[in-house]
């Protein structure tokens, strides 16, 4: 790079609108010991479930009745279980101040309330408007294609992308992907799509006999799945709101 480039007036960055799907860890109460236990439980069931998963801390449910939150300790707990806090939403002044002190970005509340701390008013850029929020372009990872059977005790994770399995998935085997999961052999194991919180992820299979289906953390276990008329059938699974929809292919 030469000197001339440094004085170049061409912008070297662009501001792009973006709609990221990110998991929110919403605290119902200030009980960190219990949170620690429950996260440990979840991780024990699906070891790489939280694999440096980015999360947003939802602290808005905390009320004045809750004790003051030790935000540092909460961040520690998250880190220990493989959750990376990107920022927080908070309503109690104490929590907002704590986030500021720890340098944790505060995001607007889900309800649309604005962050109630003083903020310099930056005018909207007049000339070039920020590029409009075209749907996010996630970095595209190549699809992971597995042609051999996935056996009990094995775990396959397609980080940042889709997973396609052309063979059988045995009981006790676990498939994870940040994107979609397709299984073309008999499916008897556990399947977790949208493992880092992507609620748009889907699961496709030729024979629904899974032990567990999960999209972005919402799951159904075999006991529930067996009651479904779709058990054993080719299906497509998607998430709408909080509900896993299982539809015949």
């Amino acid at each position: 790079m030469n000197q001339a480039d440094l004085t170049d007036q061409d912008p070297i960055f662009r501001l792009k609108g973006n709609m990221l799907a990110v998991t929110v860890l919403e605290l119902a109460r200030n009980d960190l010991a219990r949170l620690d236990r429950q996260l440990a439980d979840k991780v024990a069931k699906a070891p790489s479930f939280f694999n440096d998963t980015p999360v947003l801390l939802g602290l808005e449910q905390l009320t004045a009745a809750d004790a003051e939150l030790d935000l540092g300790a909460l961040l520690d707990i998250c880190r220990r279980h493989g959750l990376l806090a990107l920022g927080a939403r908070a309503s109690r002044p104490g929590d907002i101040q704590a986030a500021d002190e720890l340098g944790l970005p505060l995001l607007p509340s889900a309800s649309g309330r604005e962050r109630p701390v003083a903020e310099p008013q930056t005018p909207e850029p007049a000339e070039e408007p920020v590029e409009e929020a075209a749907p996010a372009e996630p970095p595209l990872q190549p699809t992971l294609v597995i042609t051999r059977p996935v056996r009990g005790g094995q775990q396959i994770y397609a980080r940042g992308g889709d997973l396609v399995v052309l063979s059988t998935v045995s009981p006790g085997a676990e498939l994870l992907a940040d994107g979609n999961i397709h299984v073309y052999g008999p499916l008897r194991g556990r399947v977790l799509a949208g493992a880092s919180g992507n609620a748009e992820a889907r699961i496709f299979c030729q024979q629904l006999t899974a032990e567990l289906l999960s999209i972005a953390g919402r799951y159904k276990v075999a006991e529930d799945l067996r009651r479904s008329p779709q058990w054993g059938k080719p299906v497509h699974v998607s998430l709408s709101g909080d509900v896993l929809n299982i539809t015949r292919l």
Binding site: R148, P149, V150, R151, G152, G153, Q154, S170, P171, G172, A173
Partner: peptide, 13 residues
Amino acid sequence: VRDSDRILGLLAS
């Protein structure tokens, strides 16, 4: 059968 499946996984990995 389950244990054999597990062993097949170990053979493959």
